[in-house]
Computed example of a mutant assay.
Amino acid sequence: MIEIIETNQDVHLYLVDKEPLILEKDGILFPSLRGAVSRPFPQKRIVVDMGAVSYVVNGADIMRPGVVDVTPDVTAGKPVQIVDERHGKPLALGIALFDAADLLAQEKGKVARTWHHVGDDIWNLEF
Rank of each mutant, 00 (worst) to 15 (best):
Y14T: 01
R86Y: 11
P31E: 11
L29R: 07
E126A: 04
P31K: 14
E107K: 13
P40W: 11
L125G: 00
H117Y: 07
H87Y: 12
N124M: 01
E107Q: 08
K89M: 11
I22T: 05
P90I: 11
T71Q: 11
D69N: 14
V16T: 07
L91C: 12
A92D: 10
D121L: 00
L15E: 09
K44E: 10
I82N: 01
L23Y: 14
K110A: 00
A92G: 11
L23V: 05
V111R: 01
L13Q: 10
A60D: 14
V68A: 03
D49Q: 09
V47G: 07
E24V: 10
F127D: 01
P72I: 04
E126L: 01
A52T: 10
N124K: 12
V48Y: 02
N58E: 13
A60W: 13
K108I: 02
E3W: 15
V11H: 11
I28Y: 15
G88R: 06
Q43P: 14
K25P: 15
M50V: 15
G119S: 05
K110Y: 00
L93W: 01
V56S: 02
N58C: 14
D102K: 11
K78V: 00
L104M: 15
G119T: 01
E24D: 10
L93R: 03
F127E: 02
R34P: 12
E3P: 15
H116G: 06
G77E: 04
L29C: 02
V56D: 01
Q106W: 06
G59C: 05
H117A: 10
E6D: 07
K25Q: 15
E19N: 13
M50E: 14
G51M: 13
R64D: 11
R86P: 12
H117P: 09
K25D: 14
E107G: 07
G77C: 00
I2E: 06
A112L: 02
W123G: 08
I28R: 15
P40G: 10
Y14M: 00
W123C: 04
T75P: 06
T114W: 00
N124Y: 02
S38K: 14
V83E: 10
Q106R: 07
W123L: 03
H87K: 13
V74H: 05
F98P: 02
L125M: 08
P40V: 08
D69P: 14
K25S: 14
P90K: 12
K18E: 15
F127V: 06
A76T: 12
P31D: 11
K108W: 09
I95R: 02
Y55E: 09
E126N: 10
S54N: 15
F41T: 13
H117V: 08
D84E: 12
D49M: 04
H117I: 04
P65S: 09
